[in-house]
């Protein structure tokens, strides 16, 4: 159930219409599927540059109330992810009380 909102709304410069949506592709970190199963699933993704390197990183919320952090070690145009554990704040993992 954990989901991250985007605090700043960025519009696009040009009208793009609906376009074509490609079939879904499951994302992995290295050779391992990104999977919140051990945290009772309910994956909630969000995509932001967390380390200021110009590449956006992936955060994935889960039912246990933590945020899995995947650093983008690819490029801005072709992201690739490396698992970095759970996102921490003020020296401790973030954990939202989730029932």
């Amino acid at each position: 159930m954990l989901q991250i909102g985007i605090a700043v709304i960025a519009g696009l410069a040009a009208a793009v219409g609906d376009g074509v949506l490609a079939p879904p592709v499951r994302l992995a970190a290295g050779e391992t599927w990104i999977d919140t199963g051990e945290e009772i699933a309910h994956a909630g993704p969000s995509f932001h540059d967390l380390d200021g390197d110009g590449r956006r990183d992936l955060l994935v919320g889960n039912f246990a109330g933590t945020l899995a952090h995947y650093r983008n070690v690819g490029t801005a145009a072709a992201p690739k992810f490396e698992a970095k554990g759970f996102l921490a704040a003020e020296g401790a993992p973030i954990k939202i009380k989730n029932w």
Binding site: I6, H42, S46, L58, A77, P79
Partner: peptide
């Protein structure tokens, strides 16, 4: 759970989707 974002930096919005299977 959906996150609309320009994942591939090509100037249009893509969709990241989290899910649940059991």
């Amino acid at each position: 759970q959906v996150c609309p974002t320009d994942f591939d930096g090509d100037g249009d919005l893509d969709l990241l989707i989290g899910d649940y299977h059991s």
